[in-house]
Design a binder for these strands. Structure first.
Lengths: 225, 225
DNA sequence: TTAGCGTTCAAACGTATGTTTCAAACAGAC
DNA sequence: GTCTGTTTGAAACATACGTTTGAACGCTAA
């Protein structure tokens, strides 16, 4: 009881602080005082700050990757033979993320924000850790995307996947702030689930855009090589 | 000669280091030793590290906002009366960014990467600074977008603009790395200009996606409220 | 009871940070 | 050539960081 309580309190506090301030901007002292825990506890239980960051990610990424693999299994099984469509693939991922058992109501947005930070904050050790631990489900998602968009050239698909990742990581990582702004400006309440529901069609349409480069419309709408 | 040389060397070094490492992760000592300048010079010329960050942004954002206003002026003038189309609006922004006079060949990607960092790293002072100094051209862009997509509800437009910003900021901020990866994987050379040419149609199509929320395809492709 | 073990605690460690100091070097005007 | 305001230089400042230490604590088994 004593142990796991301290460990979890540290993880909870770290997760929240990392999500709202970033890694370098969050000190161990902030974490331990928020968790009502002694400073030395972090190094005792985790070894170092880097290892704590890894533990924070592992705590939600490990169950998520299991959920995701299952979702992909079901998806491939459901449409025996033919590869899943783009919409189905995107939704498999989205649902896995949304339906994850959450520790609290902010769970999903913290989850997303941390993923976004992992991309943008260039913490080399984190990138290595994530690739090593969770490279497989990611590679599988990429493969599904490839089969779902056979009409795209490899180069086009490559860039459009980056665009999708960007739109998702960026929006989700600021989801809380964006939801607040929307409420202030238009008086509309939104949820992470709703953002996802709006994001998927946006991505799918962008993905299926005509496969050619466009020049600026000032050149009479011609297409350029 | 002496003054402006030191100031510019500091700005050059800071710009590059900020872009590749982030703000908190870049110390004044890294900057001054890269710039071959005394440590005290930063506080002497700029006053503080925060002010240096602002100066780095101002140096490329000020000319850019002028270029952008001009581009919007020309655009509105060209199509008297009718509001510019979505493609035209996006291209006006894109061309302004691409055609900016660059200090060196890495200029455009540093520019983009810094903009991305400004969004993701939650440096409160930076956000305030940018809103205060450059809120006007941004607001004008938003207004053009609104007129170019009258069929969208305000809520839909809001979210899709975030998606566009995300795809752009995210991709462009890692453009160098992504170009390298593409070269390694597929042996294809790319440029920032080409990324932009691929990004615009992706964004435009996503923006024009059917204006309704979609449920997961597991629910037989029905649409949900 | 006592010995052992995992855990917590206050305090200190060494290092790196942003910032300040003040003397020396420099420039241009008279 | 000398003076004046500006810019650089080496050093130190105070503070915050991640990490380590060693003593105290609470529990379980002998």
């Amino acid at each position: 009881m004593a142990q796991s309580d301290t460990v979890d309190r540290i993880l909870d506090a770290a997760e929240e602080l990392f999500a709202e301030r970033g890694f370098s901007e969050t000190s161990l002292r902030m974490i331990t005082s928020k968790a009502n825990v002694n400073l030395a506890a972090v190094n005792y239980h985790f070894g170092s700050k880097k290892a704590l960051i890894h533990a924070v990610f592992a705590r939600f990424l490990s169950p998520f990757s299991v959920t995701l693999e299952t979702a992909f299994d079901e998806l491939e099984q459901r449409c025996k033979g033919n590869p899943p469509t783009l919409n189905e693939t995107l939704w498999a991922l989205t649902e896995s993320a949304i339906r994850m058992p959450q520790r609290n109501e902010k769970g999903i947005s913290i989850f997303m924000r941390l993923l976004g930070l992992a991309y943008t904050q260039s913490q080399g050790h984190l990138r290595k850790f994530l690739e090593q631990e969770y490279g497989e489900p990611f590679g599988r998602f990429m493969h599904l995307l490839k089969e779902a968009t056979p009409e795209l050239s490899a180069v086009d698909r490559y860039w459009r996947i980056q665009f999708m990742l960007g739109a998702t990581a960026f929006t989700m990582s600021s989801s809380d702030a964006l939801i607040d702004i929307l409420d202030n400006k238009l008086g509309v309440q939104a949820s992470v689930q709703e953002i996802a529901a709006r994001l998927v069609p946006f991505l799918a349409e962008g993905m299926k855009a005509p496969d050619k480069l466009q020049g600026p419309p000032s050149l009479a709408g011609t297409t350029v090589a």
